[in-house]
Amino acid sequence: MFKQLFDLSGRVAVVTGGGRNIGLSTAMALAEFGAKVVIAEIDPQVGEEGLAALQAKGYEAELHQLDVTNSKAVTACADAVVSKYGRVDIAVANAGIALGSPGELMPDEQWHKVIDINLHGVFYTNRAFGKHMLDAGKGSIVNIGSMSGIISNKPQEQVHYNAAKAGVHHLTKSLAGEWAKRGVRVNAVAPTYIETAMTKTGAANPDWFKTWMEMTPMGRMGQPSEIAACVLFLASDAASLVTGHVLVADAGYTVW
């Protein structure tokens, strides 16, 4: 019985930013449990590499080039997926970037870039794929937030990133409340520092890394697969009673 709750056979899943890191690991997890996976990736080369990795394992997958800050393009992507497969069951809004700058010196351009990708892009993804799920009366959306939406990181300065991720968490709860009675669940995962290309520069700074580890009870960074496992749970029927939840996977960072 319980094994069947994780079975995604016949379902269609879309993962934005799915060409590498957390996105690719998530696509792998969903595909391993039977889903047909669509990688939505802005970088064609990264997308092709991710697609090749999935297909090398025999998984059914395809690639859509997508800039999540372009709302019309996100809508077109959702429409194309449903037109081809007749359905979309799972949408993972994972695409995001991290930049740093002191608040008082932050250029408008950097503020807008981070907010556009990390918050607006998540909303556009929820809206576009959510519409089709609402029409079908079922579906699961998982947004990738961050512990940065709960606490303010140090020593790096990233007010735009923190604000965007806090917005993702509240967006998740808001849409979950709107759509619960219409069969669509909306949840989020809030990771700690994960060993990816995004955190490579920060982790290479000995002062930063020392602070990160001192503030993390488990004393380690996370792996993309550990976040993918959280997404798999929330996307599956094993989480059928769960909506509006922010699943914190932070190695204990936010307990203090």
Score class of each variant (00 low, 15 high):
A73Y: 02
P217Q: 10
N70K: 13
N162V: 13
M213H: 01
L105A: 14
G23M: 06
H64E: 12
F123K: 03
R185A: 01
A180M: 11
N162R: 00
L119Y: 04
R127I: 06
D135P: 00
K72F: 03
G121Q: 03
D237L: 05
R11T: 10
G130L: 04
L66V: 12
T201K: 15
A40T: 10
I117D: 03
A78E: 06
H160V: 02
V159N: 07
Q158N: 13
F233D: 08
H245S: 13
K3R: 13
L63C: 11
V12Y: 11
G183S: 09
H169I: 15
L5P: 01
G18C: 09
Q45T: 14
S174F: 07
A53V: 11
A190K: 07
I22P: 01
A52G: 08
L30S: 04
L175G: 01
G130K: 01
Q55R: 15
A180C: 08
W256T: 11
V159G: 10
D67P: 03
M213Y: 00
T26D: 09
E32W: 04
M133A: 08
K173A: 14
G103Y: 09
G47F: 06
W208T: 06
A249E: 11
S152Q: 09
F33I: 00
I117Q: 04
D67Y: 05
E48N: 10
D116K: 02
K138W: 13
T192R: 09
Y253C: 00
N21S: 15
F6S: 10
V189L: 12
A197K: 15
S225D: 15
Y193G: 00
G244I: 10
T216E: 10
E41P: 03
L232H: 05
V15H: 07
R127S: 12
L51F: 12
K165S: 09
Y85N: 13
I22G: 02
K210N: 12
Y124A: 10
L105W: 05
I194Y: 11
Q110F: 01
